[in-house]
């Protein structure tokens, strides 16, 4: 195990984050505050409660998921895309590092950044609503798994993308709609039956549902289904990234 290399990549990526500290911290704080003002106060005041949870509180897990997914994907994809774009990836590819160590460094750093952002959102939320977390262990488990899985997914996008447009394509066209339609701001049970069934095809629904359960013990689908879904998605991402490195796909001619 080339631990020095993992550390080198990890800290170099974290340094990149530190250089954009204001943007990294200020933007999630501002957007969370905006969501609370718009959905929590303006709209939320007209919605009494969902499954016994006040609306302002109900949207906290969904808000966190929204940021975690988009941030994990954008950080991890940019982290590996940029060296490919500038050509500095030659150094990574010629260094005595295994594929696993490369992933550990890049995905680890992206996931860490997401964890920090998620925590900031949670703290910001505490200023607007009275937070309660029913199952802290499971909450942290979902939190961690989501950060790691979607950082890995972002890493795959970064490897796959060969221009800036492709880099933005999946986060904008796929992830954002899936998060919004995955019950970030509502319970799926509020939808007509047909759309409830459609929603079940959305993998993000399972994430949000499980995460919300760890907070309030209310969920759209069972917790075990949620957990299996995220673990399955993690496995799929691992398999894809393994295949990419194995075949040198878009990395090594």
């Amino acid at each position: 195990m080339n631990l020095e290399a993992v550390k080198a990549i990890y800290f170099s990526e974290m340094r990149r984050t530190r250089n954009t500290l204001l943007q990294s911290i200020a933007s999630p704080v501002i957007s969370t505050a905006l969501y609370f003002v718009v959905f929590g106060s303006a709209i939320g005041s007209r919605i009494q409660s969902i499954d016994g949870v006040p609306y302002g509180l109900f949207i906290v897990p969904g808000l966190m998921m929204l940021s975690l997914l988009t941030q994990s994907i954008s950080n991890a994809s940019f982290g590996i895309f940029f060296p490919k774009f500038t050509g500095t990836i030659y150094e990574i590819m010629s260094a005595p590092i295994s594929h696993f160590e490369i992933i550990l460094g890049y995905v680890g750093a992206a996931a860490t950044k997401s964890l920090i952002i998620g925590s900031i959102i949670l703290i910001t939320a505490a200023f607007f609503v009275e937070l309660r977390i029913a199952h802290p262990f499971w909450m942290i488990a979902f939190f961690l798994l989501t950060c790691v899985t979607f950082s890995l997914f972002g890493f795959i996008i970064g490897l796959w993308a060969d221009n800036f447009e492709k880099l933005q394509l999946i986060p904008l066209l796929v992830i954002t709609p899936l998060v919004f339609l995955g019950g970030s701001f509502y319970s799926v049970s509020m939808l007509p039956e047909f759309w409830q069934k459609v929603s079940l095809m959305n993998p993000v629904l399972y994430l949000i549902s499980g995460f919300r359960w760890s907070f309030f013990e209310v969920s759209d689908v069972s917790v075990t289904t949620s957990l299996s879904m995220i673990v399955m998605f993690l496995m799929v991402c691992l398999a894809i990234v393994w295949w990419m490195f194995k075949t040198g796909y878009k990395i090594k001619p």
Binding site: N2, E4, A5, A8, I9, I92, I97
Partner: peptide, 9 residues
């Protein structure tokens, strides 16, 4: 420094 680390030193 990054280069040194990448090569395991």
């Amino acid at each position: 420094k990054l280069s040194r680390g990448l090569f395991g030193k």
